[in-house]
Simulated scan of single mutants.
Amino acid sequence: MRIVITGASGQLGSELNELLANETEKECYFLDRKQLPLDQMLLIQDILAMYQPDLIIHAGAYTAVDKAEEEPALADLVNHLACEEIAQYCHLHGTKLIAISTDYVFDGGSAVPLTEDAPTAPINVYGRTKLAGENAIQKWCSEAIIIRTSWVYSSYGKNFVKTMCRLMAERDEVNVINDQIGSPTYAKDLARAILKIVDAANWEAGIYHYSNEGEISWYDFAVAIRDFHSFDCQVKPIPMSAYPTPAQRPKYSLLDKSKIKAVYDVVVPEWKESLSKMLAEEIKKY
């Protein structure tokens, strides 16, 4: 099987690269923004045609949530129109597609875990462009699989966990939001779930949700990071209203994972277990 993975230098792309490093039955091509510029619509299908993939794992995206408010056109190019080009290529060439989306397609008004058919109503540019990408994929490539995820972190790239480790090592006190609820996703776990789908005998198109198990706030997440490393740093809970950002965030975006568990028998680790594994791996590296 020949696979093209976009977003090669991102958190998920890096974890997929690590997991597929010794793969002999899959011919994998990892494309970063230089090799596949997702803001260049006229190039995307021609570049994909050079590789003639059987499957595309589309992990590339514009993910700077606050900056997207200043660059809505660029965010739309990367998160929406590039998805359309990729989906059109897949439709024309019979290529399978797994695309990554986000919990930010929801408005945060729910009080129960969000299923795949819950109403979408994004409240920021990033969420609107990602939802437009989802719609374009479903329009052009009805056989695609879309996986929504949330609060992604990894030992690769920039993310909340690594930022907290740095700040807690430097400061006596950090303020962290305690009224935004969801669940983090260890990118390695998500990568494993994707590969389980790739290797499955069945291919069930549609939208799926994936994050680690549990329901927490960013404050709870930060406390667990502090406790793992025994940082001498006070973590102070603050409301979202005390930390205004250019882009609004959904207050509640916990994803229901029942569908991906049932269809693909995916085992979803608990968030604290995965955090411990990532932090232990980080320690080994340095």
Rank of each mutant, 00 (worst) to 15 (best):
A68L: 11
Q40C: 05
I123L: 05
Y89G: 05
D117R: 09
Y89N: 08
C83L: 05
P37N: 08
L48W: 11
I123K: 01
Y62V: 01
V105K: 09
E70D: 14
T63M: 06
L77Q: 15
I57N: 02
D107R: 02
T95C: 15
L77F: 10
I123F: 08
I57R: 03
E69S: 02
D39Y: 09
K130Q: 05
P72M: 09
L74T: 11
P122Y: 11
L97R: 10
P113C: 00
Q40Y: 05
C83D: 06
Y89S: 03
C90K: 09
E69Q: 08
G60V: 01
A59H: 11
P113M: 01
T95Y: 13
V65W: 12
A118G: 05
P113N: 00
I100K: 00
L38Y: 12
L42C: 04
Q40A: 06
A132R: 02
I98K: 04
A99R: 07
P119K: 13
P113V: 00
T120D: 02
T102H: 08
K130C: 04
L77I: 00
E85L: 00
I123D: 02
I86A: 05
G94E: 10
S110G: 14
A132D: 00
V105C: 03
A68T: 12
A59Y: 13
G127K: 07
I137C: 14
L74I: 08
Q40R: 13
L42W: 07
I44L: 13
C83N: 13
A136K: 14
A61K: 02
L114G: 08
V125M: 06
L36K: 00
G60D: 05
A99W: 08
A111I: 08
Y104M: 03
K96D: 15
D39K: 00
H58A: 11
L48T: 07
P119Q: 11
Y126G: 02
T63Q: 10
N135K: 14
D117A: 11
I86G: 05
Y51T: 07
Y126H: 11
G60A: 05
D46W: 09
N79L: 01
L97A: 12
L74C: 02
L38D: 12
H80E: 08
Q35G: 12
I56L: 02
E85N: 03
I137P: 14
Y126F: 13
E70W: 01
Q52D: 13
D39C: 00
C83M: 15
V78K: 03
A82W: 07
G60N: 06
E84N: 06
A111V: 13
E85G: 00
P37D: 14
T120M: 03
P122C: 09
Q35Y: 05
C83A: 15
P72K: 07
E71H: 09
T102V: 03
T63N: 11
V112Y: 06
E85A: 06
P113D: 00
N135Q: 15
H58Y: 09
M50E: 15
D76C: 10
E70T: 08
E116R: 04
